[in-house]
Amino acid sequence: MTSIGNKRKTAIVRREHFNAAHRLHNAHWSDEKNQRIFGKCNNPNYHGHNYELEVKIIGYCDTETGYVIDTKIISDIIKKYILNRFDHKNLNLDVPEFANLNPTAENIAMVIYNILVEQIDSELEIKIILYETPRNYVEYPL
């Protein structure tokens, strides 16, 4: 990044969408306890969501470009590392990060963050907002 043009940080947000199935289940619990805790989300045949993902990148605007980061770069990174991996997948079966991690919205957001933080300049901050439904969403990290 070249010199800082704005002494205050700015955030740019890229919104994406993916569809995925999952089952919330703790293998250490009985079927009854899983059903009581996770309800419909414990369906043995899985269930799906239409996830809305917001990736917020926070940093200083570059004096030469005026960008915190080029949105095309963000879009390409999200497509390559998140959408190709998560979209139209069964998270429990198809995504290695969830082999031993319950794919709750909280854990999905954390996994997405951990993947993206490796792809973005370390001078920039990343925040993930993941909508599992229009009424339920998580933010990571706080």
Rank of each mutant, 00 (worst) to 15 (best):
Met1Lys: 10
Thr2Ser: 15
Ser3Trp: 12
Ser3Thr: 12
Gly5Asn: 10
Lys7Ile: 11
Arg8Ala: 15
Lys9Gln: 14
Lys9Ser: 09
Ala11Glu: 01
Ala11Val: 06
Ala11His: 01
Ile12Thr: 04
Ile12Asp: 02
Val13Cys: 09
Arg14Pro: 00
Arg14Tyr: 09
His17Phe: 06
His17Val: 05
Asn19Pro: 00
Ala21Val: 10
His22Val: 05
Arg23His: 02
Leu24Pro: 00
His25Val: 04
His25Ala: 04
Asn26His: 12
Asn26Thr: 07
Asn26Val: 05
Glu32Leu: 07
Lys33Tyr: 08
Asn34Ser: 06
Gln35Leu: 15
Gln35Ile: 06
Ile37Ser: 04
Gly39Ser: 06
Lys40Tyr: 06
Lys40Val: 08
Cys41Lys: 07
Asn42Phe: 05
Asn43His: 06
Pro44Lys: 09
Pro44Asn: 00
Asn45Cys: 03
Lys56Ala: 15
Lys56Gln: 09
Ile58Trp: 07
Ile58Thr: 15
Gly59Asp: 03
Thr63Leu: 04
Glu64Ile: 13
Thr65Tyr: 05
Thr65Ser: 10
Gly66Phe: 03
Val68Cys: 14
Val68Ala: 11
Thr71Glu: 10
Lys72Ile: 14
Lys72Pro: 03
Ile73Cys: 07
Ile74Lys: 07
Asp76Tyr: 09
Ile77Ala: 07
Lys79Ile: 08
Lys80Leu: 15
Ile82Phe: 07
Leu83Glu: 09
Asp87Thr: 02
Asp87Gln: 08
His88Ser: 08
Lys89Asn: 11
Lys89Ala: 09
Asn90His: 12
Leu93Gln: 13
Leu93Phe: 10
Asp94Arg: 10
Val95His: 14
Pro96Ala: 15
Ala99Phe: 14
Ala105Leu: 11
Glu106Gln: 15
Glu106Val: 10
Asn107Glu: 13
Ile108Asn: 08
Met110Ser: 05
Met110Val: 13
Val111Ser: 11
Tyr113Thr: 08
Val117Leu: 01
Glu118Ser: 03
Gln119Ile: 01
Ile120Leu: 03
Ser122His: 10
Ser122Asp: 07
Ile128Ser: 08
Ile128Cys: 07
Ile129Met: 12
Leu130Met: 07
Tyr131Cys: 09
Glu132Met: 07
Pro134Thr: 14
Pro134Ile: 12
Asn136Ser: 14
Asn136Met: 11
Asn136Val: 06
Val138Glu: 15
Tyr140Gly: 02
Leu142Gln: 14
